Simulated assay, not measured.
Amino acid sequence: MIPAARRAVPGAGALPTGTGYAPCHHGEILQGVFLDGGVRRPGLVTLPMAGPGSRAEFVRRPGTAPQSITVVPAGRHKAARAAALAVTECAHAAGLPPCGGDLRLTGDIPVGLGMGSSTSDVIAALRAVADSYAVRMAPGTVARLAVQAETASDPLMLDDGRPVLFAQREGRVLEVLGPALPPLVVVGCTLGGGAPVDTLSLPPDEVHDSDVRAWERLRGLLRRAVSTGDAALVGEVATASARRGQLVLGHPEFDALCAVARRAGAVGVQIAHSGAVAGVLFDPAATALRRRVRRCLHGLRAHGIPTTRTFTTSPALTAKELPDGPARRRGDRPAGPDTARRPARMPAL
């Protein structure tokens, strides 16, 4: 925790206010149980997605109890817990007494699809509290508090763009896989009718040594894919991981999704292992990319699989160069509790 230069707050008597932001992801490329110094640890590698995110504003109210946190929209309990934890950390770092405050969250991440909406809320809240105290919170501290607030956390607090194998229940990086993922074009869609998934209700997996060996093999392949810039190998890893995820999720459309991807000339598919969002992955260097993407979109719709947006993981590929152009947003994220009670929808193309 590093004290930062204090910002001038306009207006006499204005309450100290801070803001924070965090992005989302598009589910996982790889998720399983991996070896860390011989110890089994759950871990994941997320698929980055620019655009949707959570924004937070925190207004400190000096003189109130540190646990007195109000949150809008109501029901964002994980973000409220995160704010209370951050107050204690940041007040100590700033040499100020801890106090409560008002937390307001806005954003456009659909809830319950496995895109890290709750983690995004939590990280935005942590950053807003830190900003209100004019301190900078290190990513490791953000990760630790995020896990305390929500039991498990996605690696959205890491801003350098490097793909990592992340121990979501411990809030730490198991391995940096390389400098950057190979560029991909992703045709997003939702499975299971887009119904939200309560991750806490999923049955626990029984993990055998053969499972760990399979996940470790995929880890090695993904490491090689990153080092060589091999989009096809990323697709192979993501598809294998998604197929293993179906042992728990059991999406009835999964085989159709894979068939559409093969016919369209995609390199593979990926899913959220704790949600309904999925993606068909293309190598942007492939010939006739626009035709491949159009064939994919038509195939998904023919199978009744709702499409969401087409995006790229590479900043070098601009929206104008995408096969179907930039995604159009359809409004703000619906207000609701940490797990939505009705299907959430992504902004559509």
Rank of each mutant, 00 (worst) to 15 (best):
Q31P: 02
P183E: 05
E28G: 00
G101D: 00
L233S: 12
P42F: 11
G331S: 07
M115Q: 11
P98K: 12
T141D: 09
D154N: 11
A152W: 09
A152D: 07
P183V: 01
L300A: 11
V267P: 12
P97Y: 07
R309D: 08
G107N: 09
D255V: 04
A83S: 05
T119I: 00
I29M: 15
D205S: 12
A146L: 09
D121I: 05
A225Y: 00
P97V: 02
G38R: 07
S210C: 08
R61P: 08
R223H: 11
R291L: 08
G229T: 01
T308Q: 03
P182C: 04
D154G: 03
D211Q: 13
A125S: 10
I305M: 14
E321Y: 08
L44R: 02
A285H: 11
A12D: 15
Y133Q: 10
Q270V: 11
R81P: 04
R243L: 14
A83C: 08
V293W: 09
A327G: 06
R290E: 10
D198S: 09
A125Q: 03
V39I: 05
P196F: 06
G107E: 09
A149D: 10
Y21E: 02
R223D: 03
M49W: 06
G279K: 01
V9Y: 13
T313L: 02
H92Q: 08
V187G: 00
V186S: 14
T318F: 15
R76Y: 12
A259S: 11
V185K: 04
R61W: 03
A340F: 13
A238C: 14
L47I: 05
I305F: 01
A286C: 12
I305N: 00
R292T: 05
G51W: 09
A5R: 03
A65E: 12
R290V: 11
M137L: 07
A130P: 10
R127C: 12
G13V: 03
Q246A: 06
A231H: 08
T46Y: 01
V226T: 11
D338C: 02
R243H: 14
M1E: 10
G331D: 09
R333G: 11
G188V: 09
R7V: 03
T70P: 04
V280H: 00
S210I: 12
G161C: 14
G37E: 04
A264P: 11
R104S: 08
A276Y: 02
P183W: 00
T318P: 10
A138C: 05
F282D: 07
G116D: 07
P337M: 15
E28A: 01
G279H: 00
V111G: 10
V212H: 05
T19C: 06
L35H: 01
F282I: 10
C99H: 04
Q246H: 15
V111H: 04
L103S: 00
G188A: 13
C189F: 01
H303F: 05
P182E: 06
V267G: 03
R301N: 04
